[in-house]
Design a protein around this nucleic acid. Structure first.
Lengths: 210, 210
DNA sequence: TGTCTTTCTTGACATTTATCAAGACCAATC
DNA sequence: GATTGGTCTTGATAAATGTCAAGAAAGACA
């Protein structure tokens, strides 16, 4: 689906729709009044990425934060000519290179669109200004980042205590659509195994797939 | 060394000394005026833990945040009667069960003193009040947690891209004292390998130890 | 539709790591 | 100074996972 579609009436509807999803997301993470939610959401502007476009590149500076409305992004680094996929972002999640956005340090991750994507974006200037418009902002964001921290703790735990097969099962239960949407080699990398190993795990009759 | 020592003159000196270390730590993380640093530090009260004491237990609620002045804490969970060590906290670091402190949910981790420990502690009530005394607090804490997030990202990356031996080498370079101070089985677990594997890695002539 | 490219699967084999069990070491205690 | 409990090491073996190479399948595109 080409990007030209997003214009005129379509663009308008897209915008309304995405705002709602973004507002919903903000709502579930932060228990705050509707007004404030709209205030926050109003800082975000619609953007599109074509398949293959980079949202962020290692070494550059990432100066935006985006809510993914539609499409998939892959977060990865290139290490000795091997790519290591750290995560795949699906609709409903935010993407950014956190340390780069917050401390203006070089980005640590490549973030690339795996498909055509619709996002809602806030740039650094506006990002730095939310706190003035909405005094609770820093506290809300603190809580949000703390949640992300907790998720990463869980992720570390999976590597400390689970086998490759167990990690596969966990991801499959949590997000089976992913397996139809992205190349398995990326999922394998993100699970800390080779594509061959993932393929073999999925072949086992005892293991769920598709 | 018994805990009775921490009384009278000793207690006083300990307090001054720990404050300095805490203030120094705050200083390196947040570039803020001396006054504010002291203000923050003044919320923290000295405490001691004896070897084996629990700072936090899974299932309970963790309602404090502590700065480790002296001694070691182990963060772990019990999983199918096996213990999984997530991390070992050394002097200069903060300990807490973040999600439990922040959201008052059940603690996810056990945090136990591996040695007699001196810490500086803030309880939940005071923790929730800092923001009123020091308006920038939430932003500072947000940045601090974001740094912790980044460290965890790196930790995930080590599991995605490195062998057991490489992870050992990395930790050994970063903190070789640890190997003299805590049972190797805990370090092995934290590195995602069995004690036997760690022992064999350390036996190799090509690998640094002691 | 056919061609080209990428991704997935499979097999054979190598390597890494885990498991189990026994003994060595070390430090605390009576 | 023997005993005990905990930890570390070592060996034998098994299991899990990685590597390399080839072919199959699936998608992308003209």
């Amino acid at each position: 689906m080409g990007r030209e579609k997003w214009s005129g009436k379509y663009r308008k509807e897209f915008q309304i729709c995405i705002m709602t999803a973004l507002e919903q997301n903000i709502n579930t993470h932060f228990g705050i009044p509707k007004d404030d939610i709209s205030k926050i959401a109003s800082f975000f502007k619609p953007e599109t990425y074509a398949k293959g476009d980079y949202f962020s590149k290692t070494g550059g500076v990432c100066n935006k934060l985006s809510f993914v409305q539609n499409g998939l992004f892959r977060i990865f680094v290139v290490d000795d000519k091997k790519e290591v996929t750290q995560w795949i972002s699906t609709p409903g999640y935010f993407i950014t290179d956190l340390s780069s956005l917050m401390f203006q340090t070089p980005a640590r991750w490549n973030i690339q669109a795996l498909t055509d994507c619709d996002v809602y974006t806030i740039d650094r200037d506006n990002y730095n200004n939310i706190g003035r418009v909405l005094p609770q902002w820093h506290e809300l964001e603190k809580r949000f980042i703390a949640k992300c921290f907790t998720i990463l703790e869980d992720r570390v735990y999976t590597f400390l205590s689970m086998t490759a097969e167990e990690r596969y099962n966990m991801l499959y239960e949590y997000n089976r659509e992913l397996f139809q949407q992205v190349p398995q080699q990326y999922i394998a990398s993100m699970l800390g195994m080779t594509p061959e190993t993932l393929s073999r795990i999925r072949k086992k009759p005892t293991v769920p797939r598709d």
